[in-house]
Simulated scan of single mutants.
Amino acid sequence: MKTIDVMVVDDSAVVRKVVGAVLESAPGIRLLHAVADPLLAIERMKQAWPDVILLDVEMPRMDGITFLRKIMAERPTPVVICSTLTEKGAETTMAALAAGAVSIITKPKLGLKDFLSESADELIAAVRAAISSS
């Protein structure tokens, strides 16, 4: 089984750390990069392209939806959106799915670290499902 290389793009250092640890604990998944914004992601992707991208929406310098559209136009890659803005039926959720996201995980506004730890199975399943959808 091929290892799934994942990039995490989120401006929260806590999210990058916790999600990175969750992903690295999963057999067959490797954290390729964890960066704070899409512009850093673009630079890292020149070195090594991920199999799946776990992407926040609200970030400095470039928002996640704009970055998602850019990826899909240049080199379509499975993207899982992980954001506080993507509640079921929300406009941002619809925009992310329309732009090419394969799935959405809604982060809570409070208790983020505990949520991410408790949602480890959901995060891992979303990454595995994303790669099988490509």
Rank of each mutant, 00 (worst) to 15 (best):
M1S: 10
K2F: 02
T3K: 10
T3N: 10
D5L: 13
V6N: 01
M7L: 14
M7D: 13
M7Q: 15
V8P: 05
V8F: 02
V8N: 03
V9E: 07
V9F: 10
V9S: 04
D10E: 03
D10S: 05
S12N: 08
A13D: 15
A13H: 06
V18S: 04
V19K: 09
G20H: 11
A21D: 14
L23A: 13
E24G: 14
E24C: 12
E24R: 14
S25W: 12
A26T: 14
A26F: 11
G28T: 11
I29S: 12
I29C: 15
R30W: 13
R30N: 14
L32C: 08
D37A: 07
D37L: 08
P38D: 08
L39Y: 11
I42C: 08
E43W: 04
E43M: 09
M45V: 05
M45Y: 02
Q47N: 13
Q47H: 13
A48H: 15
W49L: 10
W49V: 09
W49M: 12
L54S: 11
D56W: 04
M59K: 00
M59Y: 07
P60W: 01
P60N: 00
R61C: 05
M62D: 03
M62F: 03
M62S: 01
G64L: 02
G64H: 00
G64Y: 01
I65S: 01
L68C: 02
L68N: 02
M72G: 01
R75Q: 03
R75C: 04
R75S: 00
R75H: 05
R75P: 00
V80I: 14
V80C: 06
V80G: 02
C82Y: 11
T84V: 11
T84W: 05
E87L: 07
T92Y: 13
T92A: 10
T93F: 04
M94N: 09
A95M: 05
L97D: 07
A98K: 11
A98V: 02
A99P: 04
G100A: 07
G100R: 10
A101C: 10
I104G: 03
I104C: 10
T106W: 06
K107E: 07
K107H: 06
K109H: 07
K109E: 09
G111L: 00
K113M: 03
L116V: 00
L116F: 00
L116S: 03
S119Y: 03
S119T: 07
I124W: 03
A126S: 12
A130T: 15
S133K: 14
